[in-house]
Amino acid sequence: MTEQSAVLARPPLPDDGDLDLLLLIRHFELALLDLFGQGLLAGTTHTCLGQEYVPVSLRPLLGADDFVFSNHRGHGHYLARFEDPAGLLAEIMGREGAVCRGVGGSQHVYRDRYMSTGVQGESLPVATGVALHLKHTSPGALACAFIGDGTWGEGAVYEALNIASLWRLPLLVVVENNGIAQSTPTACQMAGTVAARAEAFGARHHRVGTTDIGVIRDELAPLVSEVRLENRPLVVEFATHRLGPHSKGDDTRPHDAVREAEAHDWYRRYAQSDADRFARADEIQRDRMAAIVREVSARPLSRWEPCG
């Protein structure tokens, strides 16, 4: 019932900055799918359509001293941290100005204290080591790792949570539980719950059931502060929805499941709450992204010398 009421509610539009960022990420991802459709992108990509509000809501809760680990579905995480669509698009297109010269591509990006990797569960032990470093060198800073519901199949997650809790490390685990791991529904790949898993390690758990950015921040702000002050790991589980395919063109979900995901789309609901303001903001970000695509596509190819 709460899910249903969340669907029906028309929350007030977020502040301009948040709305712009949400829409930028949305149009970035749509632009990627469009470029793939035109055959202008090679390789693969995993869009975060429907999940954009997760990193946007966390943005003011994370500081420059915090280390963020992202995963294969990380464009929104990157854009929420740096607001650098041109650099990320250049990375994905292998163009000059790419964040990592086109070597890493969509899912291997490293900039300042932000790093994404493409292997499930790999980042959590590394984030634990970073959290240990931060605890010793910059108290108050934390390591944040984005994972999905499917990531809980990996043993490394449990090894890391155990150590983080045992050694009292400032680790924030953000679980984007979108109910599906590639093509496998969560119910077919996970016994028990994320909450019980966190509890088993003595880690605090909080479930976020809304897409309302203001509510999310109010709920999480004190909990994230506790991670910093008490050095206790926290698992935040977003009940979220993946609108698009796992990567591109590989969506085998039944029509109803896709429709159900779409019913939770913040974009659709915000569009209805303040139609004029939303439409203006939407158009600006769509045009901005289209200009970025044109500009980056015209750049020369990135250059890199293989090193051993």
């Binding site: 032990p125 634990t128 080591g129 970073v130 470093h133 090894e159 150590i163």
Partner: peptide, 25 residues
């Protein structure tokens, strides 16, 4: 404080070491 006895978690502790190394340790 700098010599750490760990659980039986080879992947976990090797990743932990990589995290420290990533930070310059």
């Amino acid at each position: 404080g700098r010599v750490l006895g760990t659980p039986i978690s080879e992947a976990g502790i090797t990743g932990l070491a990589a995290g420290l190394a990533l930070c310059g340790d």
